[in-house]
Design a binder for these strands. Sequence first.
RNA 1: UGGGCCGUCGUCAAGCGGUAAGACACAAGACUUUGACUCUUGCAUUCGGAGGUUCGAAUCCUCCCGGCCCAGCCA
Length: 561
Amino acid sequence: MSTPEATQPSNFIRHIIDEDRLAGKNGGRVVTRFPPEPNGFLHIGHAKSICLNFGLALDYQGRCHLRFDDTNPCKEEVAYVESIQEDVRWLGFDWGIHRYYASDYFEQLYNFAVELIRRGKAYVCDLTPEEIRAYRGTLTEPGKGSPFRNRSMDENLDLFSRMRSGEFPDGSRVLRAKIDMDSGNLNMRDPVIYRILHATHHRTGDVWCIYPMYDFAHCLSDSIEGITHSICTLEFEDHRPLYDWILDELEVPCHPQQIEFARLNLTYTVMSKRKLLELVRDGHVAGWNDPRMPTISGFRRRGYTPESIRAFCERIGVAKRDSLVDVALLEFSIREDLNERAPRALAVLQPLKVVIENYPEGQVEEFDAPNHPGRPELGNRKVPFSRELYIERDDFMEEAPKKFFRLAPGREVRLRFAYFITCREAIKDANGEVVELRCAYDPETRGGSAPDGRKVKGTIHWVSASHAVKAEVRLYDRLFTVENPASEKDANFKDFINPESLTVLTACQVEPSLAQAAPGASYQFERLGYFCADHEESRPGRPVFNRTVTLRDTWAKVQEK
RNA sequence: UGGGCCGUCGUCAAGCGGUAAGACACAAGACUUUGACUCUUGCAUUCGGAGGUUCGAAUCCUCCCGGCCCAGCCA
């Protein structure tokens, strides 16, 4: 069995854990948790956290809890808890019996709050939200104490209990921790830990009308569950003193260690739930699982595999510096995986008709095409060939440069698995647009090689016109035109939405074997890219494919020069 | 004139006082019935800057510069 340290790249969190184990801390146990708030869909930034937390548990033979941080009934919905579980499972992780909800702890949390009051460390405050803000001071000036700061313990106990029983309207009072209004850390200036919210909670219904704030609920939930390492993102660094303060002031089962790492940012997309929600709400995308979305469900529908996302998360590493990861790394990860597993197929996206003038009318041949060039065990399929074909429009150029290896008047190319053909004539319509090619084939080149040893530089894909199946193909491109839309100064991120992020092609012609593509199945359309049959809209006989990612395209780079 | 954190290749990221890993990207070449894949080669005399400590510094110290986060009864 390999050591944990050897299975994954090292990072500072592993170092901390290694040291803790060496010191015998927590009895050597490692218990982590992934604590999403069910107020939106998971995105690839969450995938980084999931891979980290569950990965650590796996490697150190510990466990990782899935805990819904559902302390704000106004924003949370069961639909989200369902999608979150589906996504975590799809990514390949298993929380076993360890699925929890912060709302399961509401009673315990309430009792902890009461205890805090008893210890003189919390008080009920009647200030309005505006007053609380004003009293809090600013970044550079200290705050001042609330006039309710020194209420008696009995009064606090009474008021808090009446808050719970619903005597007071929303916003009229809060419970605050009594810490330090002079602290340079605003989180320590008597933070609110309970607020009144007469809202129906998706799990507890109307049982409660007061709800704990994140800072109060999170550390205690961690402690209740026996978490050893509570891993979160950088913006919670300022909250750590409060996390520790609460656990220090109360008698709790254990005191987990909060560790912060940098959240994932990816080029050409946005990663905050608020912004993603906005894209969905304003109809810029078709939903949370639109293949252009950086959500896990979006990537799934786009044709990404869990393996590729896990490989990506491993490659990006874990550190504390803010970073913006090149989406090319994600694309590399999915190409690497699909190259290995996706069966090949011939598909013509923008058909150009080709008539092979010297090929007998009505004749049909079938060629054996391997499903994968490197994996013969994946077998072969038959591809029909006839006098009239479709090829890709881009594979013909009327005036082709020397470096263009494809079809042009007078030039010869190989039709993959079939014959060499030479272009005799390009037929144009009234607008001067090429609508058909008249070609001649060389019968001696059956199978794709010439007995006389002559070579052709180019091989193109094709499909037999009368056998091809019509398909819809959706080409996806980056959602934004700039690398970091969220950081553009004096502008709204939505101003940078790429108007060409989606191109729908409805007249594609694909080889017959693709007619029955199973929803979600991935293929490599040779020379084009990886495509997957759409989970929701693909139908037998009328397939719909989503482009996952293009193939690497050296020719495109040459063309740019 | 507040508090916290971070600066190592274009992008991520190892390194933890002994003389700059790796990946992606990029470039050149080989192979090729996918201009794919694969392979080979190249790609930081230097670690934000300046001083200092040391036989020796990306690693330790000092100062400076730059970036990020915090003033929700959101998480």
